[in-house]
């Protein structure tokens, strides 16, 4: 166990940048097409798919960015020893 904790894990800088860029690009696309988005996302009925799928998309890519960012900053969960 000790060996695994003393080995410094490589920090995920590349993943942070990749997911960050993807997320930022998605934000830019959405906010530069604000009018189309607000209009079509609030049509109701079947159009409910738009906001739900968008929310899922951001939860994956922006969530992955957040996870990698915290690791890159050295914020990791406490390693507990397995019994």
């Amino acid at each position: 166990m000790m060996a695994s904790t003393s080995v410094t894990k490589k920090k995920p800088y590349l993943q942070t940048i990749l997911f960050g860029a993807l997320s930022l690009a998605s934000y830019i696309v959405l906010f530069t097409h604000e009018e189309w988005v607000t209009d079509n996302f609030t049509r109701g009925g079947y159009y409910v798919v738009y906001p739900i799928v968008t929310a899922f998309w951001f939860s994956f890519i922006h969530g992955a960015f957040g996870s990698n960012l915290l690791s890159a900053l050295g914020l990791e969960a406490k390693v507990t020893k397995k019994k």
């Binding site: 607000t38 609030t42 109701g44 929310a55 951001f58």
Partner: peptide, 12 residues
């Protein structure tokens, strides 16, 4: 969402 009330900009 079925009633079309989600402002996705605020959400995001």
């Amino acid at each position: 969402g079925l009633s079309g009330l989600i402002d996705i900009r605020l959400t995001l």
